[in-house]
Design a protein around this nucleic acid. Structure first.
Length: 254
DNA sequence: TAAATTTGACCAAT
DNA sequence: ATTGGTCAAATTTA
């Protein structure tokens, strides 16, 4: 007999499995590029995080304090201190994730934190560490926009003009830890390249007054996170694409 | 002790 | 007057 938590965890894992299959197809067809792979990798990682966070839900599984639960609470998406340099700038896009992405390829310095009227969670403000040195005007805001499952939204503003080397793959020194059977392995973390327009940024700032539904690509678990739909109602289509997620297709509900 | 964070003040837009 | 974004002094951390 599955509990609701089990169901959510399994659902997240199944979604991750689907995306892993997509990734496999890409790799087999040699259609490899950082742009095509990153969204898939992120979604897979998010699936794991989501499944793990389910284990920490307010309704604990029967084996309270079990070793599995302990692992789940300690291993989900730990960030690395090392830098993972991203694609050419992060201008105007946002990223929703079950965990914040403190290490998204750039070095940020926090310069503020505010309580936002429409949310119980505070919003943090960061700008590029090298803003002064390189006249870099890149900044980002991070805010938890949803609980259970958690969703942290990072909104990137401005373009990096400081050093932003290429996305590094297969560097053992990089990455966060995740469970792979009984091992812990490293992998890089990059935000999804979901470009957004200025209208989208403005709408985000209107908080809960407007419900924003994003018509997203197939393999994006975030749909189910920002949606009005219950989590379990989301539909996971069988295949394809890890292309850029364009925010031009936005529908609002008042 | 240099660098990063915290936090109330300040400011511009509405 | 409110609100969200930024500044900068105080404080903490490495």
């Amino acid at each position: 007999m599955f509990s609701y938590i089990d169901y959510k965890a399994v659902e997240a894992l199944l979604h991750g499995q689907g995306c892993a299959n997509n990734l496999k197809t890409l790799l087999e067809n040699r259609e490899i590029s950082s742009v095509s792979i990153q969204p898939l990798v992120n979604t897979i990682l998010d699936s794991f995080s989501l499944a793990l966070s389910s284990m920490n839900s307010p309704n604990p599984p029967p084996y309270h304090e079990s070793s599995f639960q302990y692992m789940a609470s300690h291993v989900s998406r730990r960030s690395s201190k090392k830098k993972v340099y991203g694609a050419e700038g992060l201008e105007n896009y946002r990223d929703d994730s079950p965990t914040p992405r403190p290490d998204d390829g750039f070095s940020w310095r926090k310069y503020g934190q505010k309580t936002i009227k429409t949310s119980p969670h505070q919003r943090s403000y960061y700008r590029c560490t090298y803003a002064k040195d390189h006249n870099c005007n890149a900044s980002k805001r991070v805010q938890k926009i949803k609980d259970n499952p958690p969703v942290y939204r990072s909104t990137y503003v401005g373009k990096h003009v400081c050093k932003a080397p290429a996305f590094a793959v297969n560097d053992d020194a990089y990455g966060s830890e995740m469970i792979q059977f009984d091992q812990v392995v490293s992998e890089p973390v990059m935000p999804q390249l979901a470009t957004i327009d200025h209208q989208a940024i403005a709408m985000e700032d209107q908080g809960t007054d407007h419900m924003v539904h994003i018509i997203n690509q197939d393999c994006d678990i975030n749909d189910s996170l920002v949606d009005d739909e219950p989590f379990w109602a989301s539909y996971f289509p069988p295949l394809p694409t890890g292309d850029l997620i364009f925010w031009d297709n936005i529908v609002t509900f008042d």
